[in-house]
Design a binder for these strands. Structure first.
Lengths: 178, 178
DNA sequence: CAAAAATATTTCAGGCTTAAAATAATTTCT
DNA sequence: AGAAATTATTTTAAGCCTGAAATATTTTTG
């Protein structure tokens, strides 16, 4: 039950906590995050094209393969990159054609394809990775160490929140299907 | 010239400020931001498909048109969404087919195409926008008001830094071309 | 052991996206 | 006015990406 005066106050100073159902702050936050991501991604795409004549999906895929000595399966890569299997298949096809990636079925389980960087691929990737790291640093140059640490921490919280919310909904959907 | 002892210290406690040329923190920050963006975007895509049988590019385009009463040109939309003109042309084509968007050349300048939401389009978009806002709030539920404000502020700084860095490089490239 | 279930990948159809070239219309310059 | 430059959009070719269906292989089960 509200008194008349409290709803007058509500009209004049609208704090988020006093407006159930309003989530404009979260929305603005998301839009700003998306703007930042898009700006960075577009810039990196442009530089990869200009300086290395390649694409971001190819760079990302090679980055995964560079992390391992023994190679990685299609499924592993698709999970880590958060893209579909079919997409990995397609991008790998291009990289194999260019001699940057090697693909062979595992001897003990012929369903599985093992992907590795070729010597040429590894060398090429390492050169790109070095430049890539410099580009990123250049883009974040307006933030000092403390800002970076804080932002990293807050995005860590965000990531946890996202995983919980998404897992929660996925579970519900699965229950509904059963 | 370094004394032997100072390089020993450098080996043992590697602070970023003591390692010129190392930018691992910025890289980790970018990867975490990308993870968050990708998780949110994928989840929103899934929900738009399931609940409204539509796509994120269509939603984003309609969101721009919903902001104006008089309509928007193809160029304006492409600039705001940070996508190519050709892309807007293609997505609009689908929306026009579905009766959600109206497209007509401006009477005073026949190069220009004016895009507006149809009545049906506006109604459909508003329904989606309401759900969309709820979804975003749900995803960020693990952050309190202070976290959101702080993250928003830091992303604002990031955005400025990006604009400066990108403008700087674009200028240089233009100078090189001249 | 053979059928059924599970797993890993590929194929397919359809939509998104871009850069560059082409088209169309307007504005500027002489 | 007429040529040249500019502006707005579309087209095109190529690559990325997805979900769903298909294929191939291995594991589980009866």
């Amino acid at each position: 039950m509200e008194t008349p005066s409290s709803s007058l106050i509500l009209d004049r100073e609208t704090k988020a906590s006093e407006r159930p159902g309003d989530h404009k702050d979260e929305l603005r936050l998301w839009l700003r995050m998306l703007t930042c991501s898009t700006l960075i991604e577009t810039e990196i795409r442009n530089r990869l094209r200009e300086e290395f004549k390649t694409t971001l999906p190819r760079f990302d895929l090679m980055a995964q393969l560079d992390k391992t000595a023994v190679g990685m399966t299609v499924g592993e890569v698709s999970q880590r990159l958060m893209v579909s299997n079919g997409n990995v298949t397609a991008v790998v096809a291009g990289l194999v054609t260019d001699g940057l990636v090697d693909k062979r079925s595992a001897p003990q389980d012929r369903r599985v394809q093992i992907l590795t960087l070729t010597a040429q691929g590894r060398k090429f990737f390492r050169a790109m990775a070095e430049r890539h790291e410099e580009w990123i640093a250049e883009l974040f140059v307006g933030l000092d160490q403390a800002d970076i640490a804080q932002l990293f921490r807050l995005l860590g919280q965000t990531k946890s929140s996202l995983h919980r919310a998404i897992a929660g909904r996925t579970d519900q959907a699965a229950k509904g299907d059963a």
